[in-house]
């Protein structure tokens, strides 16, 4: 096998699980997440001659993935409101048992689905990938100010669509 292709195969197989996790949060759907990662990886493959030397293949792939997701051509594939309403909030439970955790996760997923792709992207970058505002801005190709404002709007939107989450999260966001 071509050594370059072999390297790319190895890259795909080792990094796909992590990429899929981010893509799942961005899209809220297994198939759309696969679709997104596949599209980003395909672009990485086309640039592999250069990327495999630079060691930046994963950064490139992630950057491409985020841009694909927030660009209109992908956004139109993801309904603004995904199927499924927010689950009814549970009342009275203070102990986070398994069922409660599951309920919260469903609530969070449904709430994320009600955000715009850009808002989801900002939240995932800041709170899942733990990127700084500057890193998130670089990945999305926007200013730090835009990241700050989008983060605030995203959290406000989360609070609006899922008030029960507002009780759990500090919704003003963190600044780094």
């Amino acid at each position: 096998m071509d050594p370059l292709l072999s390297e790319f195969d190895s890259f795909v197989r080792t990094r796909t699980p992590a990429l899929l996790r981010s893509a799942y949060l961005l899209t809220g759907d297994q198939h759309l997440a696969e679709d997104l990662v596949q599209s980003a990886l395909a672009r990485t493959h086309r640039s592999w001659n250069r990327l495999h030397h630079s060691g930046n293949a994963e950064a490139y792939t992630r950057k491409t993935m985020y841009h694909l997701q927030v660009s209109w051509w992908r956004r139109r594939r993801v309904p603004e409101s995904m199927p499924g309403d927010l689950p009814e909030p549970r009342g009275g439970d203070s102990a986070p048992d398994h069922a409660h955790q599951t309920s919260l996760r469903l609530t969070l997923r449904a709430a994320l689905a009600k955000l715009s792709p850009k808002q989801r992207a900002v939240l995932v970058l800041r709170f899942f990938e733990d990127r700084t505002e500057a890193e998130a801005a670089d990945l999305l190709g926007v200013t730090v100010g835009t990241v700050k404002s989008q983060t605030a709007k995203s959290l406000a939107r989360l609070r609006a669509v899922a008030p029960e989450l507002a009780e759990l999260y500090v919704l003003e966001g963190s600044t780094r």
Binding site: R21, L41, L123, L168, G173
Partner: peptide
């Protein structure tokens, strides 16, 4: 916001890992 991080991580665990190698090359 650490709670949000944990919940996002838990949500991300829902995704099923798949091999995208062949599909990627076709798309490429």
């Amino acid at each position: 916001d650490q709670r949000l991080r944990l919940d996002l991580a838990a949500l991300a665990d829902e995704v099923t890992a798949v091999d995208l190698r062949d599909r990627t090359l076709r798309t490429s």
